[in-house]
């Protein structure tokens, strides 16, 4: 990606259609680096496999502060996606607790957890998960409309332009390539200016070149919005781009490397290479 294009994309956040007052309020409200955005304590998840219990997560505990970037890594079946689902309130733990943006999930109903997600969370999936009956721009608008906001079309258009899909507003997912679909998903994840972004193998379904492009966008948008990023991946290169790497094995945290210098450097390097900042 060239630098000029990237600068345009950054500037687009200040373009018409974006409610600056709202953005400022949001920034004021956002969790800063001293506040815990996500707190996980004694988390366990057990499924029944036939007649036997199958423990997928066991006594997982960690917390993430506002603006941090964190990768959860581990081999297949280590519980990464389960952990992500629990952190986002998509599922309930067998024991332990998750507090997201000061909301303890344990005391919330399913609908209340959905409300918390709508207000604070952005999500990016491995297989994009765009709604096939909606156009690109309508897909981006969904979380904002769910919040009861209307006239978000310009805002969604700006985001799509920001991710390089300014000419694909009215295309349906089936008319977009995998990389384009994931970029729409990124725009959707940021429409509500979330406090925390969960990404599940965001490059897992993409070829390496497209994947790099998406990663660059992910990190740039994240940095610009000051969003906390939690991503699940088994791609160590991608993981090392975050400030912190939590390793899972057999459902347990086996290492939690925070503030790894090389990670920060790598982020800077990638941002220099791809974002031009």
């Amino acid at each position: 990606m060239n630098t000029a294009a990237s600068n345009d994309e950054i500037n687009s956040l200040e373009k018409p259609g974006v409610d600056r007052e709202e953005k400022r309020d949001k920034e004021n409200f956002m969790f800063d680096s001293n506040q815990e955005v996500l707190s996980v304590s004694g988390l366990a998840k057990t499924y029944r496999s036939g007649s036997k219990p199958l423990t997928v997560l066991d006594d997982v505990r960690f917390s993430i502060k506002g603006g941090d970037t964190c990768a959860i890594v581990g081999p297949s079946g280590s519980g990464k996606t389960t952990l992500l689902g629990l952190c986002a309130g998509l599922d309930s733990p067998t024991s332990g607790s998750v507090t997201l943006c000061s909301h303890p999930f344990g005391s919330l109903s399913e609908d209340e957890r959905a409300e918390v997600r709508n207000e604070h969370v952005g999500f990016v999936f491995q297989s994009f998960r765009l709604i096939p009956t909606l156009t690109a721009i309508e897909n981006v608008m969904v979380p904002a409309e769910l919040r009861g906001r209307h006239d978000v079309r310009d805002e969604a258009a700006a985001l799509l332009k920001d991710v390089g899909l300014g000419d694909r507003y009215d295309h349906f997912p089936s008319q977009l390539s995998g990389g384009e679909q994931q970029r729409v998903a990124l725009a959707r994840a940021f429409i509500n200016k979330p406090d925390i972004l969960f990404a599940d193998e965001p490059t897992g379904n993409l070829d390496s070149e497209t994947g790099e492009h998406v990663v660059e966008l992910l990190f740039r948008l994240n940095k610009e919005a000051g969003t906390t990023l939690v991503l699940v991946t088994h791609d160590l290169e991608l993981a090392n781009m975050t400030q912190r790497v939590i390793r899972l094995r057999g459902g347990k945290v086996v290492s939690d490397a925070t503030g790894a210098g090389q990670s920060a450097r790598q982020v800077d390097r990638i941002q220099e290479n791809f974002v031009g900042v």
Binding site: A114, I131, V142, L146, R147
Partner: peptide
């Protein structure tokens, strides 16, 4: 089901 699941992830209530 996938569409509904995405809506739920994005914050839609069960009823809606």
């Amino acid at each position: 089901v996938q569409t509904i699941a995405v809506l739920r992830v994005c914050g839609a209530s069960i009823g809606s």
